[in-house]
Design a protein around this nucleic acid. Sequence first.
RNA 1: GCCCGGAUGGCGGAACUGGUAGACGCAGGGGACUUAAAAUCCCCUGGGGCAUUCCCCGUGCGGGUUCGAGUCCCGCUCCGGGCACCA
Length: 866
Amino acid sequence: MEKYDPGSIELKWQKYWEDHHIYRVEEIPEKETFYCLEMFPYPSGKIHMGHVRNYSIGDVIARFKSMRGYHVLHPMGWDAFGLPAENAAIQHGIHPAQWTKENIENMRRQLKRLGFSYDWDRELATCDEEYYRWEQKVFIEMMNKGLAYRKRSLVNWCEHCQTVLANEQVEGGCCWRCGHPVVERELEQWFFKTTQYAEELLEGLDRLKGRWPDNVLTMQRNWIGRSEGALIRFPLSGREGAIEIFTTRPDTVYGITFMSVAPEYPGLLGLIEGNSQKDEVLSFVERVRRQPRRERTLEDTEKEGVFTGSFCVNPFTGEEVPIFVANFVLVEYGTGAIMAVPAHDQRDFEFAERYGLPLRVVIQPPGEELRPEEMEGAFEGDGILVNSGPFTGMDNRKAMQAIVAYIEEKGWGRGAVEYRLKDWGISRQRYWGAPIPVVYCETCGIVPVPEEELPVKLPKDAPFTGSGNPLERVEAFVRTTCPLCKGPARRETDTMDTFVESSWYYFRYCSPHYEKGPFSKEAVEYWCPVDQYIGGIEHAVLHLLYSRFYTRVLRDLGYLEIDEPFSRLLTQGMVVKETYRCPVHGWLYPREVSPELTCLREEGGKVCGQKVEVGRSEKMSKSKGNVVDPDEMIEKYGADTARLFLLFAAPPERDLDWSDQGIEGCYRFLNRVWRFVVSHAPELKVKEEAWRFEDLSSPLRAVVRKLHQTIKKVTRNIEEEYHFNTAIASIMEFLNLLYDVEKKVDWHEKATREVMKEAVEGMLLMLVPFTPHICEELWQRLGNEPSICLQSWPGYIEELAREEEVTIVVQVNGKVRARFMAIPGTPADTLEARAKRLENVVRHLKGKRIEKVVVIPDRLVNIVAV
RNA sequence: GCCCGGAUGGCGGAACUGGUAGACGCAGGGGACUUAAAAUCCCCUGGGGCAUUCCCCGUGCGGGUUCGAGUCCCGCUCCGGGCACCA
């Protein structure tokens, strides 16, 4: 018999699909659509297992939906701007455009080799002028609406990447891409006004509940960080002006004993002018500001401060309150100044303790009495107000509202909401990105490039030296004329954060060659929002938040009418593998480890021989030597096997432990499928299907029943739960049954052939989303016309899926003592009677009195006896 | 510290709304075929008790609800992730 040769059949069908445009889709009215999207890759050069997993999951969903009758959009493209391309230019002298192009070509080849059902006619790369020109147009429109603006501010600077990073792109004080520590710098930067959408972005999360993973929703909610409270003005005493603070605890205003402002507080000079403390304050501020931000903002950093010499008046009490500068107050949150209530705020408590400032208790917890001199920490819980003027005796939760109302009535301030979310800094001091389309003119200031001059193209030649932004040194690019006054002007040399490109690529896919705008509104209305988005959780507050923001911007600019870009989100787990570590040589490749777990690394002609430590499974990485190359797997087993294993080994949202034996198992399964179908192909080429269930032999009835049960289960597993692993397990079970029945039936009989044909074809149809190539080949070998991918998903008949007999479990006092078979629907009293006659049950009931019998039809009988 | 997840055989993982714990796969053991090996096929495989028929124990730990709990409730432990002086 012909052997299963994945290499040749996979290439054969990939060519067929491409030649016949099987996966091309157009906008056909009236059809029910489904937009299935996987996060597009950065063209780093090679795909990794994480990509293969991500795209295999997407392909199952896309193919399944398509077989279910949906009109499916399933595109692929390239997140093609970014630093690695520029680093390659610096290190190897290859132009970023060239490097990117070659990488795309290789990765496209790899993806095609995996047989994904992409409509390649819609492929896009964000570094194309025809792509980023629209981003520039939108940028200018955002500028005109005040949604893009320029300001000088402290920004996160990565020394290694030589560029600015947005807040979302700093992880634990380090750069999200290279891991180097981030420092602060003060720079003029372009910002997108994400804060304007803070409330809407937050509210939108509620509607995504149940459709997006909870942890992503929580992370976004935390990131936006909404706080309700009040802004209150405290007039300065003895000088002009006031100090405005934000607090979430207006119920504690009677407990204020001092105020604190950030070292960078804008009004600080006004507070210290003419005071004897001025020099001390200035040197303190200078010292704190020299300290790295991260160090200063660690929670366990000692709280320090200096008295400014100035006081303000607490309007509630008329008291004078001293104002301090304190290192723990953040200038970028609220107003950069806070009221300090040491009795009810732990940070203020610590500060007060250090400087001997008084505590004033204004909330008493129920059933307790706090005494300032006995307190070892702040009381931050709820209670009843004391010492609080007209609010004394009030529940503190109620007092919050009452006090805010009072503040507003008196004109001292107002209720307010603050967000942790900041505006998105999008300027990057690098070459390989979309140029920001503005010029700087001495007379006219900041001037947007007129639309007819777009795109502002990246100049081809630029010096990649590794220091500074290459664009700055391209004279022909920088020197330009002002669109307004025609005088000499300088072009902006910063480029946009690459997260801007990935914030709208999914709209561009809807009409990728559209020339009159970023996308056709009709096409977007036809396909969007994305019905299912699939990608890694690492973008929970990066790409996914930016995209939600950008979609709303596009909506408000009139480009589209949706709010949320992604209706459903699936975040897949990482692909991990165990690691090996030698005490002498560190991380080892699997081939450097003997079966006895000793190190095989040679040194000076001698094998090391040290005992190797088997580490826990970790994310695949070169440095740890636990990477598995997709190309090698395809070479060895074929794309179908690689895909099948990635889908079978774990449910999609969980981490997947790579196992070399596991993939062997999947390969064995496909070989079993192949053998069964090919060896019986002659008998299975029959025309009619004229059998009647009742006339079938018992093994054939079992096949029919199992087929319908399997279709039912697989359909549910894929459609509702995305549990591909259990879907595959059911199909494996089904094949096991076919082999079981193989020798029990008469293959000369017509009924056998008909039933088996139906069974085999049903199995192939269910396998298509997972392993399309082998299914296509076998489908053809059964005498069918290609393509199996265009067939409908098989249906099942409930009646045929029903078991002829069910196992009834008999329990005595909740313990299983016997089982028997019964036909479904047997009445409860019959089940009970039969259960009571069973030998083992009788034994356990001996000498006991039956108190109660619980009967669950078709399932169990539980006899309660004492 | 706060907020999310999670914990089931030697391993990856199953178990719909509480109703046979361990599907499917891997690994392991035994056997068949073969001169032999590979491949393939069959059987066994949670722990224990002379054990295919019977019994006890068993889903991180301790309680509870229930005829019945991996599943629900309360209190912990450990692991993973996110946030972390945000006033």
